[in-house]
Design a protein around this nucleic acid. Structure first.
Lengths: 216, 216
DNA sequence: TTATAAATTTAGACAAGTCTAAATTTTATG
DNA sequence: CATAAAATTTAGACTTGTCTAAATTTATAA
């Protein structure tokens, strides 16, 4: 099997791959807070194990084997986050660090039983889809609130920024998963928006609008 | 905090301390499947951190700080075992390895919430007491079935051998935690015993009688 | 009570994963 | 398109936790 460090690299490469086809050493370095030289070393190990495609100076991508492991780690991470919020009553901004540890518990059987225990949830507390035991999941069609116009409506379904600070802000503003919002006003100067949500009005900045995701 | 390896050494020393005041390098070596030379290295590290009392060639004992960590690891191990059996429907012989991983999840808050979620259980699936969040627990007064005589009765409350093989045997014979047994016969030649349990009779060997623990 | 066996420790080495500093390759710019 | 800047890799070193082999200490037994 893979070591803890290997799993973290694969997961990191997976996430970065969602934005760019090939992932650079520096991107990984920044993302996991590790020097580029160390990243290079690890990339060689992962390439030897055929978990990534790697050519010097050209960045990397996951092989099917590498992606399978990455998705399984993400499955575990999101299931444990769901468990922590739904069963142990943690808030959505408190669970990330704990799940970072729990995602490395190895037993497949355990994950599947946990999944069953919770009723096979489809999304984690932040709206991210939970892969099933075969690694399948539908990425739902999300877009930032900032992309819709006045009088358009949507349902809050995810976040782009998972930081506790942002999540706490959303919680305080009642901007939580599942809420229906309507854009009532857009300020052309700073692109801030006014949203209608459950009969009250909320003013959000462009930055918030960029990081809050909705389905139409 | 402590590393994974350090936590395992402390836990190991704690368990061995239950039988002998001072624990020897070789005992630890055998128990965690690591060469005595490596154990010596780690003992020096733990002594530097003042988690154990160590004098060369004389064996070790836990300091209060070391014991506190060990008991906390054991608390986590037993709570997760309870979770796996009671919530995820694993059998009592299946959970040890998984709990060995889970016991190293660090969040204190998580453990306490897990404890609450399950209703503050007092004993794990093998009858071992679960320390509370202050590290307190009462070791109940157990004795091997082999120590009682004909017509004596007891309630199965623990096991001395935690191996899957032994646990599976007990399960098959219905010799599970909470069952009331009465000794109806003792074979003086091989010390095997006949037990009455829920109106049926079971023949057990001396070895089994030594590893099955009861309260009177 | 001394020789021998057993237990323990020291010495030196290694793998994993990280680091800094220097070298190399790629990219961007004047 | 040549060269400076940025990105990446190589080289060499360090820490943790392990190992083997050899030395040392303690325990045992004739």
């Amino acid at each position: 099997m893979s070591t803890l460090a290997e799993e973290n690299y694969l997961k990191c490469i997976y996430h970065l791959s969602l934005n760019s086809e090939n992932v650079s050493t520096n991107q990984i370095s920044a993302s996991i807070n590790t020097r580029a030289a160390s990243v290079t070393d690890m990339l060689k190990k992962l390439a030897d194990k055929e978990l990534i495609n790697y050519t010097r100076y050209q960045g990397v991508s996951l092989t099917p084997a590498g992606e399978k492991i990455a998705v399984h780690i993400i499955r575990k991470h999101r299931l444990w986050e769901y468990f922590l919020v739904e069963k142990l009553d943690f808030k959505w901004d408190e669970v990330h660090e704990m799940a970072e540890e729990m995602e490395h518990i190895s037993s497949m059987e355990l994950v599947d039983r946990l999944d069953k225990f919770m009723g096979y949830p489809k999304y984690d507390p932040h709206g991210d889809p939970i892969p099933d035991s075969n690694g399948q999941f539908k990425k739902h069609d999300l877009q930032p609130v900032s992309t819709i116009g006045v009088n358009d409506t949507g349902v809050i379904s995810g976040v782009r920024d998972h930081s506790p600070g942002f999540l706490q802000y959303l919680e305080k503003q009642q901007l939580t998963i599942g809420k229906k919002i309507t854009v009532t006003e857009i300020n052309t100067y700073d692109h801030s928006m006014v949203l209608e949500i459950e009969d009250s009005e909320i003013h959000i900045s462009r930055e918030v609008a960029n990081n809050l995701l909705i389905t139409l």
